[in-house]
């Protein structure tokens, strides 16, 4: 691994090894402080500056075992179904995005067709469309398609939004696969689709995993789309719950909010710790561009 080599680089003697640690640590302090605050404010009635007021309590976490006693959660679906909804949404969007963008990425990497340059450039330009300010127009489209307040509608929108990034990343991965592997399959008479599915996809598995993790996180955290386009109570996700708890500011229970926020982050955090190595291969493709 390149890292190991760099870490053992001879520069070590001239660049004291503590310096990068010190710089990293210093730069990371704000993040550390913010998240430590988040963590311990979920265990106290309230925090002033750094100072907790009141005694240690797990009261803020009671939404897990006694949601009925939390006024902000009255008349909301219980937390477990919400978590499942969120999981379904994130999984579906990342799977569909992976499929669609790896197909398109393959085409851009391997096929020659009219308008290829324009399309490829255009895909990147799509990202400059301010998706959020197009919400009203998207509503018009979804209503026209009969997909307003339907899970599938929101999944499709989220999938589409993820495409510019996904296509570019996947194209990079396909660019890096040696051509002879694919050619032997083509020579054997396998069709393009079959070759893509049987030969190429397994080869870009690291890319699919890395992109998949990122897309999953985006789906998991997505707030605005489910919130605006899928308002029905039974289909809500954790992000809309957090937003709901935030209320209008006058009745906010910050202890509860931090606890729910941590609950919300936890699965993603675990996923990231497990998948870090995969994730660090996200751009293996484009390096030699």
């Amino acid at each position: 691994m390149a890292t190991a080599v760099i870490a053992r680089a001879p520069g070590r003697s001239r660049w004291p090894s503590l310096v990068p640690y010190a710089v990293l640590l210093l730069a990371t302090v704000p993040i550390l402080v913010l998240y430590l605050w988040l963590f311990y404010s979920s265990f106290f009635p309230r925090i002033e500056g750094f100072r907790p007021v009141g005694d240690f309590t797990i009261d803020n976490w009671r939404f897990l075992w006694d949601p009925q006693s939390v006024p902000q959660l009255r008349n909301r679906p219980p937390i477990i179904p919400l978590t499942i909804n969120t999981f379904v949404f994130a999984t579906m969007t990342s799977l569909i995005s992976l499929l669609v963008s790896s197909m398109a990425g393959y085409a851009f990497s391997r096929l020659r067709f009219r308008g290829r340059r324009v399309f490829l450039g255009g895909v990147l330009l799509l990202h400059s469309f301010p998706s959020v300010t197009l919400l009203i127009a998207l509503f018009v489209v979804l209503r026209f398609l009969g997909l307003y307040d339907k899970l599938v509608g929101v999944i499709l929108v989220q999938t589409a939004f993820a495409l510019p990034f996904g296509i570019w990343i996947m194209k990079g991965f396909f660019d890096n696969i040696p051509w002879d592997l694919e050619m032997s399959a083509l020579v054997d008479g396998a069709g393009r689709l079959r070759t893509w599915w049987r030969i190429m996809l397994p080869l870009v598995k690291p890319g699919l995993l890395a992109l998949g993790v990122l897309l999953f996180v985006e789906g998991w955290n997505q707030f605005l789309l489910p919130f605006v386009f899928m308002p029905s109570g039974s289909q809500q996700t954790l992000s809309t719950l957090v937003r709901g708890i935030l209320g209008e500011g006058r009745f906010v229970d910050y202890g509860l909010l931090t606890a729910v926020g941590l609950y919300y982050i936890a699965p993603i955090l675990v996923l990231f710790v497990l998948a870090q190595d995969q994730l660090m291969r996200i751009y293996a493709g484009g390096v030699k561009g």
Binding site: L34, Y35, W37, L38, V217, N221, F223, L238, S239, V242, R243, L246, Y254, L257, T258, G261, Y264, I265, I268, L269, F272
Partner: peptide, 11 residues
């Protein structure tokens, strides 16, 4: 990046 934006902004 992985935190919900409302929670991150609240911090």
């Amino acid at each position: 990046r992985i935190s919900p934006s409302v929670v991150y902004a609240l911090m």
